[in-house]
Amino acid sequence: MSDTQIREAIQEAIRDNDVVVFMKGTPQQPMCGFSARTVAALQEMQTPFAAVDIMPDPRIRQELSGLSGWPTIPQLFVKGELVGGCDIIVEMYESGELAQTLGIEAPQDAPEQAPDAAASAAPTLQPENRL
């Protein structure tokens, strides 16, 4: 895949998914605590979201940060707009703004504090699948 193809695939993922998170690893197996925490907050919202693992090719992160102007991972996009990284998502979760941004009512049983990543984080000994 050329750099241009990677860039186009990223733009397509942002355009075609109302809610998409670029993360290290997958929602089932996040490879970084910040990605794990962001996904855990999204999962509490019980709304569907797409996830893109940036780790299979280092150019994904490079092109993504070039597009978004945001240096870190994860990055959450809602309706084509960058909403933020882990700190912002956690803050918005706790203030109720995350549900608002997603255009939903926060589920009744969602905890007030953003859930800790520890429960869902991948074991630390897991090797990273960097190329």
Binding site: G69, W70, P71, T72, L82, V83, G84, G85, D87, I88, E91, M92
Partner: peptide
């Protein structure tokens, strides 16, 4: 926006983050 606010701080450390 928070994204803009965080960007202003990130910009201070351009290239050093990560």
């Amino acid at each position: 926006s928070r994204v803009q606010q965080h960007r202003m701080v990130y910009d201070v450390f351009d290239g050093q983050l990560g």
